[in-house]
Design a protein around this nucleic acid. Structure first.
Lengths: 204, 204
DNA sequence: CATATTATGTAGCACTCGCTACATTTCAAA
DNA sequence: TTTGAAATGTAGCGAGTGCTACATAATATG
């Protein structure tokens, strides 16, 4: 039936579905409605997998969420990595990160905000909450380290500021905010960051 | 048994529990864990009410949530109303609102963040989400109207900025942020607001 | 071929969800 | 005292939750 993702020394019956594609679809579902609001039954039908296959492949619903989170954080959704790839000073990179958030957080195809920041919010499952918090901590640490290279004494505080600003934009986007509203916030927040980094060109 | 809250022309068997106290406890439960994560069974045991009494008094779980939201928004949790009572310019009121949020959002007794902003986030119940969004819209409108009296052309944008900043602080508080972290954000955000309102004394 | 290994489909587990039917209790009004 | 109204307690509804036992199917290796 399928020979897509078969490793050389694979024994036993081969998997009948595409693992990466399943993780991708699960990621979209978790992102659009949050961890708890997506049940394994729906995951099964939407991924074309039945419960036993899902549990054989991912261990648990939380295991699938972990895979989805990893895929999310390592892909295009890593706004800081994208902004960083554009080069420039730390101030420019942070400003671009905020603007990227303002452009990508608003609802598109039923998906809004950040999966890491809001995907497990209010979840009744401590494991899911812990996974999202860990991913968030990793993202914050990446920002802190980059900031520290240029302004070590401000790295922690600025990373916190960025985390809070992005959490605000993610929440607003989930509540229906469009790009214009978020962009205005991103510009004000970005100006505050530049000022904090001593970039005086931020004076309007 | 009880004659606490009985109206003059009340007929039938009197209510055996204190309605306000029940709403207060429900408010704390919803606030600490979110709407979906608190079940009717737990509400019953925690409020000392059994399901039929709960439904006779509030109509539904969402009806109780609505009462809890109203109590929250009309009480001490209305940070903007509190800041406004302190008088001063619009810039000062907004700055104080942000500082109040930074002081009151961090976890205390198992409760963190804002019930209106995060209490129904990711809820699977559209009614609960709508109630929280309506309460949020009302709070935003109150800020916009007060801003408009002094800076009408900036009222909408500044209200959006405030809403986004407070959503960010609420989310961070729910993720474990303490007052120090939030206060640093509030000060930067407040400086941005003052600058936007033309208060030049914000130059550091 | 036989055998071990892994995945799949059927069916259903124990549990929780929001909610309610029903009889009973407790009150005001007649 | 009777009547009507409203709240309460007992018990449980139908639906959904995450998850799994079990038999079967499909592959690599011997």
């Amino acid at each position: 039936m399928t020979t897509k993702n078969m490793e050389p020394g694979a024994r036993g019956r081969p998997r009948a579905f595409d693992l990466d594609q399943a993780v991708e679809r699960a990621m979209l579902l978790f992102h659009s409605r949050g961890y708890d609001a997506v049940g394994v039954a729906e995951l099964g039908t939407e991924l074309g997998i039945k419960p036993p296959s899902l549990y054989a492949a991912f261990g648990s619903k939380a295991g699938l969420f972990e895979r989805a989170l990893r895929r999310y954080a390592e892909g295009e959704a890593n706004l800081f990595a994208r902004a960083r790839a554009g080069g420039g000073t730390v101030a420019e990179v942070l400003q671009r990160t905020l603007l990227e958030a303002a452009r990508s957080y608003p609802e598109r195809g039923g998906v809004a905000g950040c999966l890491v920041l809001d995907g497990a919010r209010n979840s009744a499952d401590p494991q899911a909450r812990a996974l999202a918090l860990a991913a968030k901590a990793a993202a914050r640490a990446a920002m802190r380290d980059v900031i520290a290279a240029e302004a070590p004494e401000r790295a922690e505080d600025l990373a916190d500021f960025m985390a809070t600003a992005m959490a605000g934009m993610s929440a607003e986007a989930r509540d229906g905010a469009g790009p214009e509203r978020l962009l205005r916030f991103a510009e004000l927040a970005g100006a505050a960051v530049r000022r904090e980094l001593g970039d005086l060109s931020s004076a309007r």
